[in-house]
Design a protein around this nucleic acid. Sequence first.
DNA 1: CGTGACCCTTCCATTTTCTGGAAAGGCGCT
DNA 2: AGCGCCTTTCCAGAAAATGGAAGGGTCACG
Lengths: 255, 255
Amino acid sequence: MNDPRRGRPKGPTGPVIGRALQLLDAFDAEHRVLTLSDLARRADLPLSTAHRLLQELGAWGAVERDDDGLYQVGLRLWELGSLAPRGPGLRETALPYLEDLSQITRENVQLAVREGTEVVFVERIAGLRSVRVRTRVGGRWALTSTGVGLVLLAHASAEVQEDVLNGPIEHHTPMTVTDPAQLRRMLADVRTNGYSISDRQVTMDALSVGAPIRGGNGEVVAAVSLVVRHGSTTPHGLAGLVRTCAQAISRALMA
Amino acid sequence: MNDPRRGRPKGPTGPVIGRALQLLDAFDAEHRVLTLSDLARRADLPLSTAHRLLQELGAWGAVERDDDGLYQVGLRLWELGSLAPRGPGLRETALPYLEDLSQITRENVQLAVREGTEVVFVERIAGLRSVRVRTRVGGRWALTSTGVGLVLLAHASAEVQEDVLNGPIEHHTPMTVTDPAQLRRMLADVRTNGYSISDRQVTMDALSVGAPIRGGNGEVVAAVSLVVRHGSTTPHGLAGLVRTCAQAISRALMA
DNA sequence: CGTGACCCTTCCATTTTCTGGAAAGGCGCT
DNA sequence: AGCGCCTTTCCAGAAAATGGAAGGGTCACG
């Protein structure tokens, strides 16, 4: 009855581009193909509006329709995404070093950057005989949980740090640190030590060690981490390897 | 003087979304970072319009600005692109098989799909001791030149085949086949043999052998190829390997 | 230190694109 | 036939999008 959407006005009700991007937001890892109705529902747009916008997006190649008429993210969009300097660009130069680290340790190697108040995983090499981790390339995670996240948060602007520490903090295991004061101390440690340790923050059987990658101007632009089974080795022993790898990538980025 | 753009009308002059996508089109492999003016010029849009559209795109994360204020493709767009079923999705399931092929042959391995009348390269593994090839992941190429292209064209709809054969045909080396009749015969061979051979069509020192990958409904959805130095081996000998790899990937796609 | 040639950003009267309810056309199921 | 669900097209009305102009910034040159 008191649905605020009942009887919408006739004319434009918001920025067009924003609404088109809302539609694209309806896609995620669990929903790679969607019907028109699904898209409209998930983006909270009228059916006819969604239909028209999707036609425009489809004409360009941002979305495609499969044989059953279902919508999916278009190849053109993937091509464009491949041009992002911070994602694929970084990935390309870092990959050889990540592979070296993977070869030496036989553990999980991860490469990530910060986007707002979250981590985005750019590359991930699975260690065959190591712990299973739940991250996905292109996936997001909280900055407070992971090894890479702690590194990126420790070197983020004060504003971002406050946003994260004052906001709600994700909780995954009994070991997850959610106390802002304690997190602050951990971040200070990361800055002084040059590496981070995230012990059983995500799952009770895993532990990760992260180190910062710096760009041309000395800013921290990304982070590497090694994810190992809890108790298999001493994390501080791994820190040297991870830092060396991160520094090698930093040097490669300068050139 | 007779510039048709002199004295544009004041109100909207075209679909908004289309213009935003024009802006994104301004990015390519050679132009990963651009100034506002560059973007406006390349997209043929007024400066103020480009500025406003880029603000909207930036608010969502489709574009970002680096420290110097230059625009670049945003990480959000890369994340979205990672959800394209035909690009990264295909890539993920095919990768292990491609690596096997690469290990066995030590040559260049390529995975590609068709987009309209062009090939788009989805993955590429460089053979360390093999010929240097000029393809790039996310890059486009003519359907008539490469091994993968011939496979994809041979199994495309009649309409697409006519479009390509009647249109202008790219010419790279003295060996490049540009005669439609001869191309038609080559395509027929590809269909009967189950593999394609592109001998010195792109560079005079390379040769590629391609095979089709089929999806659940039997349609050809992608192609693999091996790129080797011309004269190093007999192409027909490689065909078996490439076809076996393609069939393994096809089976993996069914499941 | 003035001048010119670039950039980037904001403003606002003008205008036409965008909007979304309604209606109609599938398709599969009961 | 009837129902539920999906998609597609249509069109009068409304406000979002437009781009010229103006203001400000930086750098290089004479």
